[in-house]
């Protein structure tokens, strides 16, 4: 599916979310990283996702993520990114247990992120 097809699939889907809302969510690099990661592993923990987010950001800027970067990502994910994804029903986030589960990510979102199953 090319990006324009994905977009029109997004317009057509009936997920209780507007295209604008979805695109606003996906404009956040951390959200894109989390949605991409959860595609392979729908059950994850806050610590696991914070490690992934900090590392992917470091990889993109050719640096090394430190324990401080990891802690910052943990705090940010806990207070902002994961509740936001939970509000939009992409994931269910249990802040007490630190457990994250991908619930209802609309398939056009994956296509838009360029995720395709390896053949």
């Amino acid at each position: 599916m090319d990006p324009f097809e994905s977009l029109s699939a997004l317009e057509d889907m009936d997920a209780g979310l507007s295209t604008d809302e979805v695109l606003r969510l996906l404009s956040d690099a951390r959200i894109r990283t989390i949605v991409t990661y959860l595609y392979d592993r729908p059950d994850a923990t806050l610590e696991e996702l914070a490690a992934i987010v900090a590392t992917v950001e470091a990889a993109r800027s050719s640096t090394i993520a430190t324990p401080t970067d990891y802690e910052r990502a943990t705090v940010e994910l806990y207070h902002s990114t994961l509740p936001r994804l939970d509000d939009h029903e992409f994931v269910s986030f249990d802040p007490d247990e630190g457990i994250v589960r991908a619930t209802d990510v609309p398939p056009p979102v994956h296509a838009l992120l360029g995720i395709t199953d390896p053949q």
């Binding site: 900090a54 470091a58 990889a59 324990p67």
Partner: peptide, 11 residues
């Protein structure tokens, strides 16, 4: 098991 660091494979 604590996070000690993370980096791209090229780094």
């Amino acid at each position: 098991d604590e996070f000690r660091g993370g980096l791209g494979l090229d780094q």
